[in-house]
């Protein structure tokens, strides 16, 4: 038999992808969960942030000459949301959120592996531990990026302002985001032994990170303390960049440019991937 150097990495990528396909319920929830957000939050708030249905005058406010109030209000909303309607704004952030949630919670499979004994199978193999864990993270990242793509494609049906040309580039950012949070999930999971403990930590982190990432509302209108936190949130950079490539809306804080976003995500992915590698090398079956 032929010896292949990257073989352990391929083994784990293969495993994660196969597992995803074998769990069809997960496929459904991948699509269903963001769909719920899009429909109820996106459509609900979408019509609030739209002046098109607004015809009359506001009591006590004189109408400026040459402009209708609805035009004025619409202009204001468009500025806030970077020139697109709210539904498009939100849907373009939803792909990043899906990838973020799926990859972060994906670390839970490490704990399942501890409980079902599969971790021992990977620990006793003569393969490089770094390659094994990198393969696992890579596999999860591929799977979650595909989930992100599915959400983007759904977005095309629901929202009007998305551009097909930006999808390819957006996927690169989503993939780096997936590596970042898969690695973080794995690092946390390697330290823990219970599923409940992991879920608690992840739930504690996901909600604030989600709301301070610019998915649901722009950074510019956030309170300044929230902006500071958003700056240290890797998800913010993915949300900004993916939205930029999908819709052209450039709504971010000052350091956020498509290039900077890429650098930040690449750095985050590299650092956390290496951390996961070192953490897995130190792993033994001792409690």
């Amino acid at each position: 038999m032929r010896r292949v150097n990257l073989s352990p990495l391929i083994a784990m990528v293969y495993r994660q992808v196969k597992r995803w396909f074998s769990a069809r319920s997960r496929l459904v929830s991948t699509v269903l969960n963001p769909l719920v957000w899009i429909i109820f939050l996106g459509l609900g708030w979408g019509s609030v942030f739209s002046a098109s249905g607004f015809k009359g005058a506001l009591p006590g406010i004189p109408t400026p000459p040459g402009l209708s109030i609805s035009d004025l209000v619409q202009k204001y909303f468009n500025t806030i949301f970077g020139g697109v309607d709210y539904l498009t704004f939100m849907v373009s952030g939803m792909a990043s959120m899906t990838v973020f949630l799926a990859s972060f919670i994906g670390g839970i499979s490490v704990i399942w592996d501890k409980q079902f004994g599969y971790l021992k199978e990977t620990l006793v193999a003569p393969a490089s531990r770094k390659l094994v864990i990198a393969g696992r993270i890579l596999g999860d990242a591929i799977v979650t990026t595909v989930q992100g793509l599915i959400v983007i494609l759904l977005g095309f049906i629901i929202a009007s302002g998305l551009r097909i040309a930006g999808v390819g580039i957006a996927l690169i950012y989503l993939f780096l985001l997936a590596i970042t949070f898969s690695s973080l999930g794995v690092v946390i999971a390697l330290k823990l032994s219970s599923v409940e403990g992991f879920q608690m930590i992840v739930n504690l982190l996901t909600m604030p990170l989600m709301f301070m990432s610019g998915v649901f509302y722009p950074f510019t209108t956030m309170p300044s303390w929230m902006q500071v936190i958003a700056l240290y949130n890797p998800l913010s950079y993915a949300v900004h960049a993916v939205r930029y490539w999908l819709t052209g809306a450039d709504v971010g804080l000052s350091p956020m440019t498509p290039l900077n976003d890429l650098l930040v995500l690449a750095a985050g992915a590299t650092i956390l991937l290496l951390t996961a590698g070192f953490a897995f090398e130190k792993t033994s079956i001792e409690e």
């Binding site: 032929r2 150097n5 083994a11």
Partner: peptide, 19 residues
């Protein structure tokens, strides 16, 4: 969650075998 074959295949891959 995987098949018997896949369990074997991944094991072989982890040990550097393929093809």
């Amino acid at each position: 969650q995987l098949t018997a074959y896949d369990n074997m295949y991944i094991h072989g891959r982890l040990y550097g075998y393929s093809g």
